[in-house]
Design a protein around this nucleic acid. Structure first.
Lengths: 67, 67
DNA sequence: TATTTTTGTACCCTAATGGGTATAATTATG
DNA sequence: CATAATTATACCCATTAGGGTACAAAAATA
């Protein structure tokens, strides 16, 4: 994917018709974290992001920069 | 890549024949961070990881889980 | 447009990341 | 082997991420 982490999660969440509180609950992370992440906060913890991505069968990995 | 973030950075670093202190210096992160990251620590900050990956023209992105 | 639902912003607080550094352990080199 | 270089572990400490929560703003719906 070429989308940012933020938009990826936001779009996947909507595909499953979940609200932010519901996603946070399912992933076992805080609501604040979901919100900040979807708003593009960079200084987030890697393991927390992976907790969310895991719900979508994905994870963070090294990719080539496209610029 | 299918390698973990830790091994990716460690291998790239060796390709450039850099020591951990040198890599930390170049990336503008602390030495302790480089060490913990190469040892597979999960609860690291995303932006710090990207600071390192940037030296190799790469970054963190969403990938499909291979399991 | 009124009402409900969802999302964004703000606050307090605790736990822990990351920086610096010293020292032990390990590895590479003479 | 002995020595140097690199890496791993351990400590203190300031900053801050993230949880909880309340309320404002925005979006969706009747």
């Amino acid at each position: 994917m070429n989308t940012s982490i933020a938009t990826f999660i936001k779009e996947k969440r909507k595909q499953l018709k979940l609200t932010q509180p519901e996603l946070a609950e399912k992933a076992g992370v805080g609501l604040r974290f979901v919100r900040e992440l979807e708003q593009g906060k960079q200084s987030v913890r890697l393991d927390k992001v992976n907790q969310l991505l895991d719900l979508f069968g994905s994870e963070l990995g090294v990719i080539q920069k496209t610029d």
